[in-house]
Structures are given as structure tokens and as C-alpha cells.
């Protein structure tokens, strides 16, 4: 599979050099393949949203590289290069109420990108594109002349998706796109995103804290904890043979819609002390099994690899 994005040693520090410095993203590396969905999970403050925002250059990275089709996103760029790059990478936000300008009509919201990039030659073509996009996301033409407040949460999220699709991107960062929606509406939006991925060959970075939905939509899942990526694996592996104690703790905290399971579920609490790293332990991302990376020391890696042996 071809790599669409390579993230190498990405760091995002805020308030650098001051006493209140925050290492929001601290030296993480991973790849995203063409056509896949990579899920990124973790608790609030773990740096998952910052990772997404730095990747799309909403923040300037403190250090490290984001290679998109082999080209560094954070390098010096002319306006023209930036424009081209912006077209290829788009974002869908969590709050469908805050991410749409309340004073703009739907048609103008969706066509903003089309106008900026000059993708439509005439007014007719512009409207034709808007209508097509509305239909793609399951709305209809009449909606084009309305304002955002006339839509429900699920419909607004569809508008957000239509706006992202307007510039025909290759890669979409979805930052908690369904967290603010009702369960029944979540399924509608997720189904739509999966359908569009199949039709248009899109690649997604899906950031969320709802693990059951992430597992369903993602091919691979990365787990973040305090700015570090602690585990990265294909999604079924992550559920069957998860290794990092933090991932175990995170999964054990999720309630499932099954009363019997809930009566027997015990929550595991994670404390970084369980690792007992000594000063000369080198802790880094290691490939424990093909495609399964864990942030660990050499000793732990051996222990983790044994779990694979016994499972066999």
C-alpha cells in the first residue's frame, strides 16, 4: 500500500520556554496509507486534536515533519503551493453549531472553497456543484438557500462534510465528527462517511473518544496518552491482543450496551509507574508484531512478543 502521509517525530509545544510549557504532542511518528481510515483515540488533553490540527497546518509544528505525498507540509511555501496543499487536505469539526458561519447561506458556505480555488467557471457551474454536493450528503437542492440555524445537528454535520468535499480533497481529518450527535444520527453520518470513502477513494484521520465507533470505522487505530502515541495496530488486533497497559485501562472503562457484561466488568486503572523504567531503558515505539507498534522498552517488547507466541 502507498503511503499518503508520513508523520515523522512531530512535536507541538505551546508556551515554549515559559514555565507553563505544554508538550501537547511529543515526538510521534506514524504513516497513513492511501484509502484507509486511521482512528486516533485518547482522553481529552492527550493531544489527539492537536495532532490533527498540526497536520493540516493550523498550528506550526515545533519540530518534525508531516510529509503529504512525500512533500513536507511545514516547509516554506509560496501562496500558490499552500493553495494547492489546502485543497488536498480538509477538515470536519466536532461542533456542527460552531463550525458553520450563521450569517452565510448554505450555498455560500459550501461554495466558499470552490470560489477560493476557482473551481467553477460560471455561476451556473458553481450552483450545479453545490446542488450535487448537497445530494451527495443526503440533503436536497432547496437547502441551498437556507441558513445553518434551520438545520438539525446531524444535517449540519452533513453540511460540514459537503463543504469539505467541495474542493475534491484526498485526505480528510475528522475531529470528533459525531461526538455531538445523537446515537441514531451518529450511524447516519458514519454510514455516509464510509460510503463517500468507497466512492471517492478518500483517506481519513478519524479522531474520537468513542472507541466502539472508532473500531467500526477504522482500519487501524492509534492510542494517545499525554502527547505520546502509546499503541498503534490494526483495529481488530487492538481489541484482541492489546498490549499497552494504558490501552487496557481505556478499554476497560467503556460501558457496553449489555447488562450482563456490565455486571461483571471491572475497571483497570492505569498508572505510569507500572512500567518501572530504569534510567538506561530506552523507551520508544517498537514493532512488536507486523503492523502492531507499542511504546515500550526492550524488556517489555520481549514480554509483549511472548503474548503473541502463546496466542498462536
Amino acid at each position: 500500500m502507498d503511503k499518503l502521509l508520513e508523520i515523522k517525530g512531530l512535536k507541538q509545544y505551546f508556551n515554549e520556554g515559559k514555565p507553563n510549557m505544554v508538550k501537547a504532542v511529543d515526538d510521534i511518528s506514524f504513516d497513513i496509507y492511501k484509502g484507509e481510515t486511521l482512528g486516533l483515540v485518547g482522553e481529552s488533553g492527550c493531544g489527539k486534536s492537536t495532532t490533527g490540527r498540526t497536520m493540516i497546518r493550523l498550528y506550526d509544528a515545533t519540530d518534525g515533519q508531516v510529509l503529504f505525498n512525500g512533500e513536507n507540509v511545514h516547509g516554506k511555501k509560496s501562496r500558490k503551493e499552500l493553495m494547492q496543499f489546502n485543497r488536498k487536505m480538509q477538515m470536519i469539526f466536532q461542533d456542527p453549531y460552531a463550525s458553520l458561519n450563521p450569517r452565510m447561506k448554505v450555498a455560500d458556505i459550501i461554495a466558499e472553497g470552490i470560489d477560493i480555488h476557482g473551481l467553477a467557471k460560471s455561476k451556473e457551474e458553481r450552483m450545479k456543484k453545490v446542488y450535487e454536493l448537497l445530494e451527495t450528503v443526503g440533503l436536497n437542492q432547496e437547502h441551498a438557500s437556507r441558513y445553518p440555524h434551520e438545520f438539525s445537528g446531524g444535517q449540519r454535520q452533513r453540511l460540514g462534510i459537503a463543504r469539505a468535499l467541495a474542493v475534491e480533497p484526498d485526505f480528510i481529518i475528522a475531529d470528533e465528527p459525531i461526538s455531538a450527535l445523537d446515537v441514531s444520527i451518529q450511524a447516519q453520518v458514519v454510514n455516509l462517511m464510509k460510503k463517500l470513502q468507497k466512492e471517492k477513494g478518500l483517506t481519513y484521520l478519524f479522531i474520537a473518544h468513542d472507541l466502539s465507533m472508532v473500531k467500526y470505522i477504522s482500519d487501524r487505530i492509534g492510542v494517545m496518552y499525554f502527547g505520546k502515541l502509546v499503541e498503534l495496530a490494526p483495529s481488530d488486533v487492538l481489541y484482541k491482543n492489546l498490549l499497552h497497559p494504558y490501552t487496557k485501562s481505556l478499554l476497560s472503562a467503556i460501558p457496553l450496551p449489555d447488562p450482563d457484561y456490565e455486571r461483571s466488568r471491572t475497571r483497570k486503572v492505569y498508572s505510569p509507574d507500572v512500567h518501572g523504567y530504569s534510567a538506561d531503558d530506552v523507551v520508544e515505539m517498537r514493532e512488536v508484531a507486523p503492523g502492531h507498534y507499542v511504546y515500550c522498552s526492550v524488556k517489555e517488547m520481549k514480554k509483549y512478543q511472548e503474548t503473541y507466541e502463546t496466542a498462536r
Binding site: 441514531s184 450511524a187 447516519q188 454510514n191 466502539s212 467500526y216 482500519d219 450496551p257
Partner: peptide, 30 residues
Amino acid sequence: FYDPRHPYTWGLLSSMPSPDTDHEAELRAI
């Protein structure tokens, strides 16, 4: 959870993926 009878309850219960839901299968949105 184990013997729901109303179609709306069915809809709610099946619009969430369970850990075993097939990746390829479409979610049953209401």
C-alpha cells in the same frame, strides 16, 4: 436489552456498532 419489543428500541440498539460488528457491514441508522 435482551427482549426489546418496540421497533424504536430496536433501532436504538442496532444503530451502535458492537465490538463484533463487521467492518464492512453498514450500520442500521434510523
